[in-house]
Design a protein around this nucleic acid. Sequence first.
DNA 1: TCGCCGTACTTACCCGGTTCACCGTTTCGG
DNA 2: CCGAAACGGTGAACCGGGTAAGTACGGCGA
Lengths: 345, 345
Amino acid sequence: MKRPTIADIARRAGVSKVAVSYALNDRPGVSEAKRAVIKAIAEEIGWRPNSAARALSGARAHTIGLTVCRPARILGVEPFFMELISGIESELSARSYALMLQVVTDPGQEVEIYRRWWGERRVDGAILVDLRFSDPRVTELEELGLPVVVLGHPSEAGTLVPVWSDDTVAVREAVEYLTALGHRRIARVAGLPELVHTVLRDQAFTAVCRELGLESHTIMHTDYTGDEGARATRRLIGSPARPTAIVYDNDIMAVAGLSAAQEMRLDVPGDLSIVAWDDSPLSQVVRPALTALSRDIPAYGAHAARTLLSLVAGEGEVTGGEITGFEDRAARLVPRGSTAPPPAG
Amino acid sequence: MKRPTIADIARRAGVSKVAVSYALNDRPGVSEAKRAVIKAIAEEIGWRPNSAARALSGARAHTIGLTVCRPARILGVEPFFMELISGIESELSARSYALMLQVVTDPGQEVEIYRRWWGERRVDGAILVDLRFSDPRVTELEELGLPVVVLGHPSEAGTLVPVWSDDTVAVREAVEYLTALGHRRIARVAGLPELVHTVLRDQAFTAVCRELGLESHTIMHTDYTGDEGARATRRLIGSPARPTAIVYDNDIMAVAGLSAAQEMRLDVPGDLSIVAWDDSPLSQVVRPALTALSRDIPAYGAHAARTLLSLVAGEGEVTGGEITGFEDRAARLVPRGSTAPPPAG
DNA sequence: TCGCCGTACTTACCCGGTTCACCGTTTCGG
DNA sequence: CCGAAACGGTGAACCGGGTAAGTACGGCGA
């Protein structure tokens, strides 16, 4: 029942374990005949390289780490992370890398975990999400020496390698679309104001609305939960200058907002247009289906993973080209039933 | 920049590395004075045990594995897995275990991955989800010798350790509740019929409906997507003996069903009552809020993790008590606005 | 004074795979 | 025909911890 080692293979093949190592790793130093014999024996007895032994002799851990800091209830309902993870994985598993995951409740813990993983040589690199302004995690990870890819705008990524998409053009696309429909009062129900992408979207939103000379362009910040999305919606609907269109920062808030509006006897899209950021299947099962800023999130994750892997591989080497990051496609507007011209009044 | 080893500590403390090993592991063989000195140095230079080295000398990998086989788009929208994962993690991180995750597209790959992880000594144990009837994965994992906890009913878990909850009582609670409201035609929109829990729920549903002498009790199987949930709902509404209540196997289908019903001008709950299985925040943001069979999924995951860890720890030991599994609480019905007495006609 | 025991540490070797230096053959070019 | 290079293969050392088996020293009782 003991799991076989290269020494077992060496014994059965009548060679030294060094020859086995060379044979199995497709390195020169053994004849093709012996290589074939050794590979056959390895296959037959079901040998697998002991990852600990490999990692110990200087090689890589063949694992990358990801920590996510959000409470379980939000994490579960937001399709974003699961889609991101499966995208990351598609890239990793193709190269036999594993993903180590940890969910924490406080951003401070994240660095602690990365520090531990790196110190214990459990991971070769990591992905940092939910970038904040002057993020203390960035400076700490910089000095740690761990290869890191940041999902977020380059301006706040320090010397870490960024993977991002330009939310500015997506915001512009949405606002211009609503303006073209005739809307003059647009609101934005945004996520956590400490996150970089929230503020960048806020700024873009304000700038585009000003540029187009809109009557009003309110922004409300929330914690991404449906509850807060609904509450923000009710406050906006009850406000003196009620907006005729609302852009939400995720789809769960958009769905909650839709329900809140319908409950208040508003017709969507007749009285109120709704646009969701991120386009999960959720946007399409509600009625009316939600107009959404659609991104390919699995692809986003895959790009992050690929960038990280090349960073890990090129580490310390004298490659002419520096790895500078990757700009993914911006989200594209997918019009559906939740948007229409504003009411005539 | 090189990461410190116990040899570095030994040099600075002027002792052998064995003394350092004893000191840091709180084992006898060093004086308290030296122990304190050694620990101080370790702390100062930020030493962490190299997990590969530890794992190599017989110890555990301190990692458990989880593979999930569902397409990305379903995975993302179903809160179940993210909640399960965060529950598993809460238990693991408390004991400094890590979680290795892999998303696959075909159940056959799962065993292959477990085989690899176990062969490479990357994991100490694993969790198996989405149990099927006569599941080939069960027999394969049994012979592999990898400690495994199965999320699913003991009858199909073989000799693997099961962690499950009794869906029968939950089905009974839902059907009896609807019957008490006056419903006589109830339908069930179920998940994949090859999964054990789907069939067990099907059987319980049929049995309870027969027992209560209901007029009709249709079951339709789907792939858990909102699309299929909506399609099933439309077919049920259009059928001759239209049900007055529908119980869905997950919340995304329930939401889709709700939208489909409203689109067909049915009032929920006036014309049609809706019950969702699994109670994520999603159930509460739509209008009316969904009556749901609520489970504490993070706790479920935590129980699975705890059971697996004790299995891993007790492995090979002569403990009197065998680890037999864990039965979690059954789901409880949480009545909300989506259920009411059936229409008078 | 000797023997015995416990404490505090050390030396030596293991885990399993990789890598380096070296060594005996064969081949080939000058 | 001889020297150099290429091939095929080996032993030994190494990665960073863990563990078994000593050893040196001090105290204590007889």
